[in-house]
């Protein structure tokens, strides 16, 4: 048998055709994860019983596999009569799972801002709202930009998990070709290489961004 290069090349267009779906799923999931993660971190920061509960939820999410969450949502939601497309369920699963990690990113991004910054804002009589908008948030965004980019890459690399829910992303397409031709190696290798190139390219972009952010306005 061996590796059939011509067949591998012939599978490229089909698999590459799903790059858009993959990037789209990763992007929407990343935004969802950031939104939930930010909310989690704000509630945790406020403390009290709600804060402790959310802190535990974050720990729980981080202690469980993404695959288990995807199965959970995929099979449990219909049980309660909630019927959603597999793509929607997949995005929900990735958003929920990665929100636990992004909450930590927000926490680190806020904790890294020196205490003197909010004190200076208070000493200048800025209101709490203005201090957050003009002093804290911009610095937090700068602190989280690189880790957020790295988590986008992680989420991208997790999108092939959605193949188990039959979402037509790149791994799903590769399996479609495999089951039609009974040749698994070539389409899987092609899908793997495309993911590797995407992940490396985006990581590289994140590294450059990080260097630029460090160069501008470093203290």
């Amino acid at each position: 048998m061996g590796f059939d290069l011509a067949f591998a090349l012939s599978s490229v267009p089909t698999i590459l055709g799903a790059v858009g779906t993959t990037l789209c799923v990763a992007f929407v999931s990343c935004i969802g994860a950031a939104a939930i993660g930010f909310f989690f971190e704000m509630v945790r920061r406020a403390g009290g019983i709600a804060g402790l509960t959310v802190g535990f939820v974050i720990d729980f999410i981080r202690s469980t596999p993404v695959l288990a969450w995807l199965y959970f949502l995929y099979f449990v939601l219909p049980f309660y009569g909630i019927r959603l497309g597999s793509m929607t369920v997949g995005v929900m699963g990735l958003s929920l799972y990665y929100s636990g990690y992004l909450a930590e990113v927000f926490k680190a991004g806020i904790d890294a801002i020196p205490k003197g910054q909010s004190e200076a804002a208070r000493a200048l009589s800025l209101s709490r709202r203005h201090a957050v908008i003009y002093v804290i948030a911009p610095q937090m965004l700068r602190n989280i930009a690189a880790p957020l980019g790295n988590y986008f890459v992680s989420i991208l690399k997790a999108t092939p998990y959605l193949a188990v829910l039959a979402v037509p992303e790149m791994l799903g397409r590769a399996f479609d070709i495999a089951s039609e031709t009974y040749r698994y190696t070539e389409p899987l290798v092609v899908a793997g290489l495309i993911f590797l190139v995407l992940a490396l390219a985006i990581s590289n972009g994140v590294k450059r961004l990080e260097r630029r952010l460090l160069a501008v306005g470093s203290r």
Partner: peptide
């Protein structure tokens, strides 16, 4: 108030550091 560790806002220019409170307060 002037602090020991300056506490300038690192993401704003010198001018914006000075105008922030003038604008917002």
């Amino acid at each position: 108030m002037v602090f020991q560790s300056f506490n300038l806002f690192p993401h704003l220019t010198v001018l914006s550091n000075c105008t922030l409170a003038l604008r917002r307060v």
